[in-house]
Amino acid sequence: MIKKLGFGCMRLPLLNRDDQASVDRETFNRLVDTFLEKGFNYFDTALSYHGFKSEAFVREALVKRHRRDEFLLATKLPPRMLKDKEDHERIFSEQLEKCGVEFFDYYLLHNIGVSAYQLACRYDSFGFVQRKKQEGRIGKVGISFHDTPELLDEILTAHPELDFVQLQINYIDWENPGIQSRRCYEVARKHRMPIIVMEPCKGGNLAVVPAPAEELMKSYNPDASIPSWAIRFAASLEGVIMVLSGMGTMEQLLDNTSYMTDFKPLCAEEYRIIDQVTGIINADTAVPCTTCQYCVDKCPKNIPIPNYFALYNSSKRAVTDNISSQFVYYLNLASNHGRAGDCIGCRKCEEVCPQHIEISKLMKDVSETFDNGPGLPTK
């Protein structure tokens, strides 16, 4: 039986935090070895991680140093990189070479949102990965998804041949209107689609929580680490087959493997505490938006104001400098809506806002945070 903890290779240990290519190979080797020794074997990377070098780092630390039957390897193809159908074969072949393998156990179409899905359909990415599966070059095919539950339902309805879906799920995003973890999870369950969870600790931001929240957790179980609550929350969900965690230190790896070796789902009291913790974290919000949606109908620029506020609040609550997941959701929303920077200050939204929020003023702050984000094309 495969254990539910996977090693995420998006945040490998670095010698220089400002240089994504400066992976500490010695530390990474030790982490890989220990992870396997503890009985875990799932590794998740992608073409674009660590400046397009993560796959090569995985080859050196994992593939070259361990038997192929000792591990499961997943990587991803981003449809946004495609210019024509022929690009599939070229990219896939390069990935096999970079990773030093003959096949991938799990292979995903990466960061599927509105625009990426359109490209995947245009270039028949779904057909390509199925052909590679038939050739024995891919074991299981899936998508990593960052968009609305409605789009996920559309995709899973159109592509029942998929073997799994990878979703961002954590307790702080469970009801977040910008990410909608719960509703996306429910869509996947409706389609009986196995789920792999990414960002269970929200890029490390649920590894450190406000003092009152930590006190609640520690009073219940003094020996449980703060991150363990987040990872166990995701792993406790029915239908979840794997939870990915980026482990950059031996301390993190030993902690994660300690409670995931003989995994026990959350009990009712632990869920109650997580609800309280979520309330404490959410109380520290930059914008008191209740997502009533009244403002949306009045916006002449089709700006999804509540969604952007939810992502902005998440970025302001971040206890690390990693808010990349919020950028991803912003990018996907901005692909078929107005950006925050498109606000013309007409204030029609403010006329109907029950919370009397100065939306036009705050949109400038949201724009400053997200409109120059990584991967966001300029108009």
Results as ranks from 00 to 15, higher is better:
Gly338Lys: 09
Glu102Arg: 12
Asn41Gly: 13
Cys346Asn: 00
Ile303Gln: 02
Glu238Pro: 07
Gly139Ala: 08
Thr157Tyr: 04
Leu162Ala: 09
Ile155Pro: 03
Ile226Met: 02
Asp321Leu: 12
Lys133Ser: 02
Val209Gln: 11
Met363Ile: 00
Glu269Asp: 12
Asp365Val: 00
Ala207Glu: 11
Lys98Trp: 00
Pro377Thr: 03
Ile281Pro: 10
Glu102Trp: 03
Ala334Phe: 01
His50Arg: 06
Ile359Phe: 07
Val101Tyr: 06
Pro288Glu: 09
Pro288Lys: 13
Cys184Gly: 00
Thr249Phe: 14
Ser181Leu: 11
Leu244Arg: 09
Asn176Leu: 10
Ala286Ile: 02
Pro200Val: 00
Gln118Leu: 13
Met217Lys: 05
Gly8Tyr: 01
Arg25Thr: 01
Thr291Leu: 03
Ser367Gln: 04
Phe370Asn: 01
Asn29Pro: 04
Leu72Met: 14
Thr257Tyr: 14
His110Gln: 10
Met198Cys: 08
Gly239Arg: 04
Met193Pro: 11
Thr290Leu: 15
Lys379Ala: 06
Glu89Cys: 01
Phe309Ala: 02
Tyr294Ser: 15
Ser22Ile: 00
Val63Asn: 11
Ala310Asp: 03
Ser54Asp: 05
Ile2Thr: 12
Glu60Trp: 14
Ala213Gln: 12
Phe104Tyr: 13
Tyr117Ile: 01
Val277Phe: 10
Leu5Asn: 07
Trp174Gly: 06
Ile172Glu: 10
